[in-house]
Amino acid sequence: MLLASLEQVVFGYSDVPCLEDVNIHIYSGEFVAVTGPNGAAKTTLLKLALGLLQPWEGNVHLAPHNADGNKLVVGYVPQHIAAFNVGFPSTILEFVRSGRYVRGSWLRRMSKIDHDWTEKALRQVGMWELRHRKIGELSGGQKQRICIARALAQESDVLILDEPTTGMDQESRFGFYELMQHQVKERGKTVVMVTHGLSEVKDHLDRIIELERKDDGGWKCCTMTSCSGHFVPVG
């Protein structure tokens, strides 16, 4: 099932486009990595796909429903969240539990299912023992973990992760890649992840999207299928 598509997308922040002629299709059940050097507009690409930025030209489509016909739930883990810097007064448990708010109405009481999902997500990222800590007291890697836990707790159909392994040690990164592969292979989720550690994760991936510099200085988007010469097949 086609979950997201960007067709002939052009986007820029000033009067010069930073992305041109982007054509990407993301299907359900894929583990996709987006890679490219610093400043290659990887985060911009994710934000365009999520609808957080509007393209100058072209079409962006995100499926409203998942394969079961239910509302598509997207779990987004940004690279930076400003609230962490202003001492947001919240516990880890409170924060991860907020992922459950997308399930059902705003006013309903948190059920045992909600608590179970919250606990499971926190255990999956190894943060259950620290659940009563305030989020402002955490290290960079731990902050990434609880953001991932929140996305897992909301039972997202699609996980969009912007450099989620920043601040993690090597052992944690490998554990994280296995967890994401498990989400894709065993649970049928879709994972799109911006990463610089392609060599570490490529064995788990279905597809790679690479942003490359064009001759005129802009960036173009190449995928395994469109630029197969650039990549060694993975998976």
Partner: peptide
């Protein structure tokens, strides 16, 4: 009171709140 949960999410981060619907 009625909007306490959305307000929590929006106050934390507007982008993730938007992608959450």
């Amino acid at each position: 009171f009625l909007f306490r949960r959305p307000l929590y999410q929006i106050t934390f981060d507007e982008d993730t709140a938007k992608t959450g619907g």
